[in-house]
Amino acid sequence: MTTTDKATSSLKTDLIVYSCILALSGLQVVLAYGHAQGMELMLRMLAVALVQAGFGVMYFMHLRDERRNLVLALIPATVFVLLMMNMIWSDSFRLLHMRTPIK
């Protein structure tokens, strides 16, 4: 494969990823006006956003082309910290259901 072929192929991949990210953004708008509500809607939205972010990190930021130990050093620690932040949710629901009623 020549350098020009490689460049064309990379641009094609970028355009496909770009289109996917935009399509997923459109899907989020459709979901927002769909029948799902509350926690179910939020989980669907976050799932779509995670796929978009995955595309962005792997293809736009080229993390898939880096050495595997860089990926292993960066991603699991970040995911762990973000998951640990989930600990707060139960307290927010407690506030909602056990709060003093609004006068």
């Binding site: 989020q28 708008v29 006006y33 939020m42 976050l46 779509v48 956003a49 972010a53 962005g56 930021m61």
Partner: peptide, 25 residues
């Protein structure tokens, strides 16, 4: 460019959480 893509990625979480979960129906 990594920084710029990151700013783009953050927006993908801000839009659903801040805007789309609060749409007026």
């Amino acid at each position: 460019s990594l920084y710029w893509h990151f700013v783009d990625l953050v927006w993908m979480f801000v839009v659903p959480m801040v805007y789309l979960l609060n749409v007026s129906r």
